[in-house]
Simulated assay, not measured.
Amino acid sequence: MLAILGPATAQEARPYKEGPVREVTFVRIKPGQFNNYMKFLDGPYKANMEAMKKAGLITGYTVYRAQPRTPQDADLVLAVTFANMAALDRSDETDAVMAKTMGSMDQREKGAMDRESMREILGTQLLRELDLK
């Protein structure tokens, strides 16, 4: 029975190929803090993302301004693109790059707490691109 099912299953090709993975973070900027947060993104955040690209840890990053439908929605979206799911497992290399660009773990955690006065992270989602054949 399995011998009969094996060839039939192998012949069923998916109509897509698994592509890059995007980590999408939804951010709500606090009143009066948009320019301050954008300065952070254009400074330390950008430097870190460029170092991650140079190290081959990510393939790209993007910042989107969103139009919130409700007061609870994000007004900024940060997207980081990885070549595939396996690229997410390179945490030791990522930590090494971040230590060079954003300081020690304690410094990064303090920076994240300081940024809470500018923005609120509403959540993060992983999306896998499916390339249609």
Rank of each mutant, 00 (worst) to 15 (best):
M1Y: 13
L2T: 06
L2A: 11
A3Q: 03
A3N: 07
A3E: 10
I4K: 05
I4W: 09
I4A: 05
L5A: 10
P7Q: 02
A8P: 15
A8C: 09
T9E: 00
R14V: 00
K17S: 14
V21Q: 03
E23R: 02
E23C: 07
V24L: 09
T25A: 04
V27I: 15
V27N: 02
V27W: 15
R28P: 00
R28D: 00
K30M: 08
G32Q: 07
G32M: 13
Q33N: 05
F34E: 14
N35D: 12
N35E: 14
N35G: 01
N36V: 12
Y37D: 11
Y37I: 12
Y37K: 09
M38D: 04
M38V: 06
K39S: 14
F40T: 07
L41D: 12
L41C: 13
L41H: 04
D42K: 12
G43H: 02
P44F: 01
Y45V: 03
A47P: 04
A47T: 03
M52C: 08
M52P: 06
K53C: 00
K53R: 14
K53Q: 12
K53V: 01
K54R: 09
K54V: 00
A55D: 01
I58E: 05
I58M: 05
I58R: 01
T59M: 07
T59C: 02
T59F: 05
G60F: 07
T62I: 09
T62R: 03
V63S: 00
Y64W: 09
Y64N: 13
Y64L: 15
A66P: 00
A66F: 01
P68M: 10
P68E: 07
R69K: 11
T70G: 08
A74E: 13
D75R: 05
L76N: 10
V77L: 15
L78F: 10
L78G: 10
A79V: 15
A79I: 10
A79P: 00
T81Q: 12
F82C: 04
F82I: 01
A83R: 05
N84Q: 04
M85P: 05
M85Y: 13
A86Q: 14
L88C: 06
D89Y: 06
D89F: 08
R90L: 12
R90H: 14
R90A: 12
S91L: 09
S91V: 12
E93G: 10
E93W: 11
T94V: 07
T94N: 00
T94W: 03
D95N: 12
D95S: 10
V97E: 07
V97H: 06
V97Y: 03
M98C: 08
K100F: 10
K100Y: 09
T101M: 04
T101V: 01
T101R: 06
M102R: 14
M102E: 15
G103F: 03
G103T: 11
S104F: 07
M105T: 06
M105Q: 03
D106A: 15
D106F: 04
Q107I: 01
R108T: 01
E109H: 02
K110H: 02
G111V: 05
G111D: 12
A112T: 09
M113C: 05
E116P: 00
E116V: 01
E116Q: 11
S117Y: 07
S117W: 05
S117D: 14
S117R: 08
S117F: 08
M118I: 10
L122N: 11
L122V: 11
G123I: 08
L126M: 15
L127A: 12
R128P: 07
D131N: 06
D131A: 01
